[in-house]
Design a binder for these strands. Sequence first.
DNA 1: TCTGGGGTCCTAGGACCC
DNA 2: TCTGGGGTCCTAGGACCC
Length: 417
Amino acid sequence: MLAVVDCNAFYCNCERLFRPDLKNTPIVVLSNNDGCVISRTPEAKKFDIAMGVPYHHISKLCREKKIAVFSSNFALYTNLSHRVMSVLKSITSRVEVYSVDEAFIDLSGARDFFHEGQYIKAEVERLVGIPVSIGIAPTKTLAKMAVEMAKKSHFGVISLDTKKKQLDALKGLPVSAVWGVGHGRQLRLQSIGIKTATDLMNYKNPLLLRKNLTKLGEQIQDELNGIQCFPLGERTEKKKSISSTRTFSQASYDKIVVSQAIATHASDVACELRMQGSVCKKIAIMIRSNPFQSFHEQYNGMLAANLLTPTSNTFELIKIAFELLDEMWKHGISIHKAGVFALDIQDEHEHEVDLFAPIIDPRQAELMRTIDCINDREGPRMVRSAACGTDNKAWAMRQNMLSPRYTTSWIDLPMVR
DNA sequence: TCTGGGGTCCTAGGACCC
DNA sequence: TCTGGGGTCCTAGGACCC
């Protein structure tokens, strides 16, 4: 049996720790530049404040309803996240930190799962002060469903430790509520007659399931049936890609301003690389204009360079990033967002350091241009750059940038912190 | 000149998640 | 006026080798 421990409205409750007077007040926390809502308490949800809405759409409501609004403070959230995780590690030896506000833990030693869950919840709240919900089940997928129920329940803990409880929990849930089933997979499942979580659990045609959902479909189905496919991992492994990107508070035409941002991002990425003892074999930079100002000429570019000598050296990475920026810079277009990506990451000691080797592969004299597009009158085209691992289609959907058949779905997409 | 099969590696792209 | 940031995994298909 395993459990997922999920902090309730994590960022909001981090802020609340220092503002006990806001105990029952609705709170929202905003993203970088106070752009949009990335966390909100149940009290704020009652005003229909959705995840990801632009703040300027709800600022009036916030004033009227006296909703407390915070700019984000990620240093604080990271710190409190570590504290929560160490409490969990002190209680159970096997903890998989899944995200800043979520962890899977092993509960196999417990005699009474529900009471163990309550104990853990109480300990986290006592020692850190962050309220959590806990879902307990034989598999991660079921535990995720349990924790969703737990958030709405009085105790904040739900244990699906018997088959009957599991069946009851799935009853009536749409298949999109299953962990790992997003909009695209939901449509594919619908096309073969699977509409609810129970449908998926009982589906009898593994070939068709695999055809539509690849191997993952069968795994999710097994997990719903209590068969573990995604075992608890320790997750101490190193990151496989590292990025640093930021929207400017004010878009800029100035190459110097953008260079400064690029240098900062490259330096951050280099620092992260060294912290995990890695080097990267490929570096990419991204600059783009503001897609919301569709009346302006748009630019969305990404350029990558393969490195002959993998590195995590700040100066080397900044130098290459600047070369890339030179290569792709477009005069007369205001840049709204910029970023640096470290790709093809490998262990530091895995490659031999040759101090005299050139950094950029001379065989690739001209830098690899992966994306470079300027839109015409029809509005920005989003082109995905594969290597960076970003999800431009989902992103474009959220931004209402794709055709109308997509725009209706963007609200379904999880917009998360 | 034509024809064959099998394997591995790499990359672009799709989908999801928090 | 004002719309975030950071990740993972899987697969198809092409390049290349024998």
